[in-house]
Design a protein around this nucleic acid. Structure first.
Length: 529
RNA sequence: GGGCGGGUGGCGAAGUGGCUAACGCUGAGGUCUGCAAAAUCUCCAUUCACCGGUUCGAAUCCGGUCCCGCCCUCCA
């Protein structure tokens, strides 16, 4: 496998320190708000990396931190009159709601800064002892000059950084590039006791400490957004290597930014999208699919139109899955080997190419292309094949198995909570049955009226030789569906088709719905039990 | 100012020396269908920002020009 390493700026063969183990650390959010789309990209991408590495036989230990001690949290807590740590922990819970929705698996460890203050103090003490840090009036700074490799990740020299530096110069620092390991607490701020007085950790030290604590002195993969390269990861590296004397990370991976109308997403521009708001408009699998449809190192532009398009594209894949499931329904499992033929061979070729694409620096966009190819192969095969042929079913079963296996690496085949029990489906089913009767007696006018009624509710009917199927993006409210049912029944009565009108009434009764005909029209209610 | 990355069809987006430049969306036509929908088939870039160069051969390598994004400040 090839992995692009930010530090060397080229793709390198992935060789873990201790195969088959892979130790992976990804920087998690600072929890002072709901996460936004920009947070979602690394989440989904590195979750996919993890799934793929596991698929390839690696044993992955995955750690993702929460920064729950930070100036932004303190400021926000101050405004809202809440305890900073409580606020942070509240948003950690909210974080999990969003991440779960996107199908992001929980990390093996989710360490929090607030629970590692002792480790951090120990690390800072060690850095001071080794001459890599110094104390100034309750603050502790990292001595950049003492670490010769400083700048090797972001690829810049200290002189270069000086050139365009906009950092205000703190006269107490030995060198303007020195950064805080420990910050003295101002009045009213939360603090922990330390050898240097009351204070809290600086921004970068927590990751070095927690990564080493849970994964060892050398990680295989360390990931995060592009913007973390400098200063965050540069500083993490400087701290960790100064302390351990070992290489901190073998492969640095960074994802590109999300833009909105080709502008960086930022609060000042007012083009900030909370994941929560997006998930209110689009299903989570569509969001996940969209994030993976562009190579992770490229910028990804966001707008509703693009997500709508992604929804259609993903719909193709999901439809294939549905068709294939229908095709193999009820069939027996055939022995392997029997099913081999040119079709299966082609599917396997696409699978091999999918894997080749993922092996090449996790090229999810290209991998998706091969998934679409399998989709087309399957659809074509099913269109030609006889679903009563056991052999054909066995082949479809095998192809579907491959299709789902690959889709699950990307995490785009989410199982929605079962809607089978939903009342609207029963109601639509009754309508469908009535429509079928009407079609059989060639009453297409009314049959089409039923289809249109359902369509207005967002329910699509597709007729096949065997049966008709119902699809809906979102479950329509029962009241709306009942409105249509009553309307159709009244049309039937107008046509003096009382048998069918009664049929509807009887079927509804089975579902505990009573119809009462009045002079003004019918009304309905749930039967008392 | 310094550093990094990028400009591919109507749109999105892969491809980094040689197969017909993937794949998705959109559009056109055909098959299927009572009609639809879904599915399927065919078509839609002689061309990869521009100009030079290297090479038998370049979207892909080199040089230059123009444009865009990101980092250098909290940020995923």
């Amino acid at each position: 496998m090839q992995v692009y390493n930010t530090q060397s700026r080229k793709k390198e063969e992935l060789i873990p320190l201790d195969p088959p183990n892979i130790r992976m650390y990804v920087c998690g959010p600072t929890t002072y708000n709901f996460i936004h789309l920009g947070n979602a990209r690394p989440l989904v991408f590195f979750d996919t990396v993890r799934r793929y590495l596991e698929y390839r036989g690696y044993k992955v230990k995955y750690v993702q931190n929460f920064t729950d001690v930070d100036d932004k949290i303190i400021n926000r807590a101050l405004k809202e009159g809440e305890e900073p740590l409580k606020l942070a922990s509240r948003y950690i819970e909210e974080y999990f709601k969003d991440a779960d929705a996107l199908g992001v698996r929980r990390a093996d460890v989710h360490p929090r800064v607030s629970e590692h203050i002792d480790d951090i103090i120990k690390a800072i003490t060690g850095l001071i002892a080794k001459g890599y840090a110094y104390v100034v009036d309750g603050d502790v700074y990292y001595r950049v000059e003492a670490f010769p490799g400083y700048g090797k990740l972001s690829g810049r020299t200290q002189e270069e950084m000086m050139a365009g530096a906009r950092v205000e110069i703190d006269e107490r620092k030995e060198n303007p590039a020195d950064f805080a390991l420990w910050k003295k607490a101002k009045p009213g701020e939360p603090y922990w006791e330390s050898p240097w007085g009351k204070g809290r950790p600086g921004w970068h030290i927590e990751c070095s400490v927690m990564a080493v604590k849970y994964l060892g002195e050398t990680l295989d993969i360390h990931g995060g957004g592009n913007d973390l390269i400098f200063p965050h990861h540069e500083n993490e590296l400087a701290q960790a290597e100064a302390l351990t004397g070992k290489p901190f990370v073998r492969y640095w991976m960074h994802n590109g930014f999300i833009t909105v109308n080709n502008e960086k997403m930022s609060k000042s521009l007012g083009n900030f999208f909370l994941l929560r708001d997006i998930l209110a408009k689009f299903p989570p699998d569509v969001v996940r699919f969209y994030l993976l449809s562009v190579h992770y190192r490229s910028p990804l532009d966001f707008d509703d139109g693009k997500l709508t398009e992604a929804g259609k594209a993903l719909g193709r894949l999901k439809n294939t899955r549905l068709l294939a499931c229908e095709f193999i329904e009820g069939g027996r499992e055939l022995e392997k080997g029997l099913a081999q033929d040119a079709f299966i061979e082609e599917v396997k070729r696409e699978k091999a190419e999918f894997i080749a694409a993922m092996d090449d620096d996790f090229n999810t966009a290209q991998a998706l292309g091969h998934l679409f190819n399998i989709s087309r192969l399957l659809n074509s095969y099913m269109a030609e094949a006889d679903k009563h042929d056991e052999l054909a079913r066995a082949r479809v079963r095998e192809a579907l198995h491959i299709f789902e296996e690959l889709g699950n690496i990307l995490g785009i085949f989410m199982e929605y909570k079962e809607e089978k029990e939903d009342l609207w489906l029963d109601l639509a089913g009754i309508m469908l049955d009535v429509r079928q009767m009407l079609r059989e007696e060639k009453n297409f006018v009314l049959a089409d009226q039923i289809r249109n009624c359902l369509y207005e509710l967002g329910i699509v009917i597709e007729d096949t030789p065997e049966k008709s199927r119902i699809k809906a993006e979102n479950a329509p409210p029962v009241e709306k569906v009942m409105e249509k049912v009553i309307f159709i029944r009244s049309e039937l009565r107008k046509n003096k088709d009382y048998a069918r009108a009664d049929y509807i009434r009887d079927r509804l009764k089975e579902k505990n719905i009573l119809i009462e005909d009045t002079r003004e029209g019918a009304r309905w209610r749930f039967a008392q039990i």
